[in-house]
Amino acid sequence: MNRDYARYALRRVLQAIVVILLAYVFTFVVISVLPGDPVTNTLRNPQNGFTEEEIARIVSYYGLDRPVYEQLWDSLSRLLVGDLGISLRSGLPVGRLIGDVLGSTLLLAGSALVVALVLAFAIGFGTRYLPKRYGQGLLRAFPSLFLSVPNFVIGLVLINVFAFQLGLFRVIDSEGGLATFFAAIALGIPVSAQVAEVLIANLDHEAGQEYASVARSRGLGQTGLFLRHLLKPSALPVVTVVALTVGELLGGAVITEQIFGRTGIGSLVERSVTTQDLPVLQAVVTLAAVIFVVVNLVADLAYPLLDPRVRLGGAKPRDKAEVAR
């Protein structure tokens, strides 16, 4: 198992690195085949006030006077030493621009994930153990409802009720704890829907398994059955689902940050798109790819450790000897 696992882990890590590199190259190529030359256009925009010398310095820094493949090679080599380039709009290093806002976005996305998980597991437990007549049918409708309401609508409703009417937080100073909490709810609700869907389906499946009946025949009550028997097998696939929702959390964060007036990756992206600040966009896309790939890598690596049934290397189950006599 251990050697198989090491081999599996190594293969997955190498795959992840290849995916990240490909994402970088793909973005680079897309940007460089865009019609027009946004870099030079931006630099030569009189409003930006670059002098000819500065323009020449930046152009040669990016090697824009050289063939595309050489530029790509340079850009990749700089990426490997952590140099993400310089913003065209502000002239600041892209690494610093992102570093300044990354924390806020990660806080938002992380809180949203917690909100999503709490909601999903509460719904999951409720669908099994609320009295049939009252809660179950309604609760089962929640995920579809959550998925079908866009998160900006949820955000606007939350702001209207909790900020404007109840005054619990202020939209102007949006970095406070409560403001983050409500932003996380707006972002977490659609994500919780996906997790809850999978969880409910798994709980239903596991509850119908023979071992659940057998465990009940041993005298386990409803809560004991849920906690000791149903929760773990049902929650295992959730690991994979959560990893896949990272894209949603990052994408949703862009919109949520706009609605709640937060500075973060979202506002940076929005500004960079409108001003065609290509180095920043290139870096953000790469960053998103890295986060997505790393989270899924962690999920893939964790899964075999969590689920004893997963066997690596496609080998047949170990010899089962009938030792009894």
């Binding site: 009946s213 057998v214 465990a215 009940r216 005298g219």
Partner: peptide, 28 residues
Amino acid sequence: RGRRIGFVPQDPSTSLNPVRTVGSQARE
């Protein structure tokens, strides 16, 4: 249940929780 009436199921391979050790279930 269990204390006075025990149950031996039909298919042993599906009658124990697959993601928990036999011992942890036996302790129940």
